[in-house]
Design a protein around this nucleic acid. Structure first.
Lengths: 147, 147
DNA sequence: TTTGCTGCAAATAGTTTGCAGAGAC
DNA sequence: GTCTCTGCAAACTATTTGCAGCAAA
């Protein structure tokens, strides 16, 4: 929780430092992104904030995500089905494991990724700046259910 | 080239086996997907075929890609910027290295991926069905250019 | 002849933008 | 008081769908 609190303050601070105003709507969006419980989608963020700000517009959510992305403080997870979900808690590239049934997202620890990055750089002669690694499967919960 | 020819015939054969008709438009789309030179986008496929079939509709390209995807004979590469590109030459998941300047896509060989998959399965208790691994960077050509 | 396929146009979904008023600083 | 931010509505982009005619088998 102190981590999440820190993330919230980090993002707010970065916004302020870059001359952006701290509005209640913006704070609400940052709060949800900083926690990123369940890696929320734009819709989910909007729905959640609507409870406190009934007039909150989707456009405002989009605009703020673009802004916070541009500061490098949120990671956009674009998925094959076209859906986007966000992680402001760990805004750097990291692997995800996604359940295709319940859409749960887990962050595994993978040591071997760094060496793989070097391997790729050597083999292809690219300067690697970024990456994305997602595994898709079925979580143990969904596996246990008779469907 | 014999490989590409084989891919073309494999896909056409699978379409026929599943009771789909082999139209000239369909053949043209399959031919481009089977080669997948440069991992074409829907737009690029459409443009290219328009030269031979001036009335070719975008909808037809989309419909055929959906169909061939459903047969598991083309891989859809959805990228963070929202663009989709396709690989019918290697329709199984495999890593990509993408140049963010010239959009070139290279397929590297990575041995360590299988062991990583096992590692993830054990750590998260997921049944892993699929994955996606993309590296983004700058290729040596673009690097050499003074921009 | 039958059935699925194509082209066109309209519909849809997700995201972005222009504008006028509201609000942070 | 200034200048950015917000809400609304319209615009835009990528993709999908309904329909009538066409063509593969």
């Amino acid at each position: 929780m102190s981590d999440r609190n820190t993330r919230f303050e980090t993002i707010i601070g970065k916004l302020r430092d870059n001359g952006h105003k701290i509005t209640p709507q913006r704070m609400a969006i940052v709060r949800i992104l900083a926690e990123s419980l369940g890696h929320p989608s734009v819709e989910e963020i909007h729905e959640q904030i609507r409870q406190d700000f009934p007039t909150m517009s989707l456009a405002t959510v989009y605009r703020n995500i673009v802004l916070i992305k541009s500061l490098g403080e949120v990671l956009e997870l674009g998925f094959p089905d076209g859906s986007n979900r966000y992680d402001g808690n760990k805004p750097f590239p990291h692997p995800h494991v996604i359940c295709i049934r319940c859409k749960k997202i887990v962050d595994p620890d993978l040591d071997s990724l760094d060496s793989m990055k070097k391997e790729v750089a050597e083999e292809t002669d690219f300067k690697i700046l970024n990456h994305r690694l997602d595994f898709f499967g079925i979580c143990s919960n969904c596996m246990a259910e008779k469907v």
